[in-house]
Design a binder for these strands. Structure first.
Lengths: 250, 250
DNA sequence: GGCTCCAAGTCATCTATAAGACATATGATA
DNA sequence: TATCATATGTCTTATAGATGACTTGGAGCC
């Protein structure tokens, strides 16, 4: 392994010391991010990795510990360590924070209203860090839960990232994030949201079954991938007469 | 140490096996929660703890690792390990998620409008798990940032938890959570929030400098302590014309 | 065929040891 | 007295080895 500072040959006492286990972690992250190990597939066993990278088992385990807490891999005692896989459930659980009036988490349905490609607007260029004039795929969906319309989603994603999705036949899945991962190798690692209260414009109000001007919760979210590159921009408008946005601060 | 399953005497093969490091962690948590070690004070050194608890250094370290990730303690290389201390900055950074129009985090000022005690309302009883008829202290504050009024806070906390606070002379600090910890031994460990869009009622609108009926973001938060007991209930109304609520989903 | 049991492979836990990095206190020296 | 080198105590990193827990697959048996 090209890891530099073996304890026998300590690192240059200069300002650059990177612990072995972090170097190992970065190597593993890179292999996952580059797609060398696909989601769901097993990593080599810990002893094998230790031998390959020429470090001790404990060091590999410490590196893997960090990947686990970053939700990049999943360990299963007796089976092995696997690249984390986005599932509809996990994606919903993690990113969909809508609860009903009773405060219970909600499992939404969805209905596609609109799908089309077009040149990116100025705002899309900014949010998604696109080159001006890039083409984006836009999606509009209406989500309901418990028989009641809950929210309206406006989704934008660079067409180049999801080739063929624009012409996809039939319904798209309820959660797009696992589709991105499985079909296009795009793993959503984190999301940045900005929430505001806004008055529903007539069209939104109509779709949500509200009077125009009713306050709705506007959730503006950019989802980022492995290299922290923006992947998808989504603005959701939530009817907070019957639903709410729940957030846990640990 | 009373820790049960030393590796030489493995645990009963029944369904109850608790790893040593978790037992150690629980012991340490209890000592901190009970106030035996106060915020800011140093824990015994790792070797000392290992000797006292009759486990290896690695096991103590693994237990401490969990306390660190739970933000109960802070480690400082060369100095020691200390019980985490709520500071105004850390509390603001962690719990105050308001950003300005440019998306920059905001450092708010505050002005107290109202402070009084009274019997708990039905809603306060429910949110704070109080006995009916308990007395609560209510606080109303107006926060501003960048010279602009940002949000109105309604705070409720059981009077019994903060004896004397009702008659506190002079201004209360900008962040109450560190006051709770330092004055009353109440450490806020997590908070549960529910967000909705609502139309500003006339009084709120007046205080925030809005027209009545303007949509505002209503942030309903219950803050919990060590034993996961509710400590404080707070409803904040945010003017999202000039500010927003920022949330990062990792 | 279906079942049990065992063995191998894997992660999980625990111990022991050593040396590096960092902060602070101590004491010698000028 | 002031400063600097040293010593000490702390967390940090890294290694090695042993044992336990869990899963899987296959051999052997009925």
């Amino acid at each position: 392994m090209a890891v530099v500072p073996k304890p026998e040959a300590p690192s240059p006492p200069g300002p650059t010391f990177v612990p072995l286990y972090q170097q190992v972690r970065d190597i593993l992250v890179h292999r996952i991010a580059s797609g060398a190990w696909r989601p769901g597939s097993p990593l080599p066993s810990e002893p094998r990795l230790a031998a390959e990278l020429n470090v001790s088992l404990g060091t590999v385990r410490k590196a893997l510990d960090e990947l686990v807490s970053g939700r990049l891999v999943v360990r299963q005692q007796g089976r092995g360590t696997f690249v984390a896989e986005q599932t509809p459930d996990s994606a919903l659980f993690h990113f969909f924070r809508v609860v009903d009036a009773a405060g219970e988490r909600v499992i939404p349905t969805h209905r596609e209203l609109h799908r089309a490609c077009g040149p990116a607007t100025e705002e899309e260029v900014a949010r998604l860090a696109l080159a001006p004039g890039s083409e984006v795929l836009r999606l509009r969906r209406l989500r309901a839960a418990g028989g009641r319309t809950a929210l309206l989603e406006h989704i934008s994603i660079a067409t180049a990232l999801v080739p063929g999705l624009a012409d996809h036949e039939g319904a798209l899945p309820n959660t797009l994030y696992d589709l991105y991962q499985q079909q296009f190798g795009l793993t959503i690692r984190r999301a940045s949201e900005t929430l505001r209260a806004a008055a529903a414009d007539p069209e939104t109000a109509d779709l949500l079954g509200l009077d125009a001007g009713t306050p709705v919760l506007q959730i503006d979210r950019v989802a980022y991938g492995f290299e922290d590159q923006p992947i998808e921009w989504r603005v959701s408008l939530l009817d907070t007469r019957h639903f709410a946005y729940a957030n846990e601060i640990e």
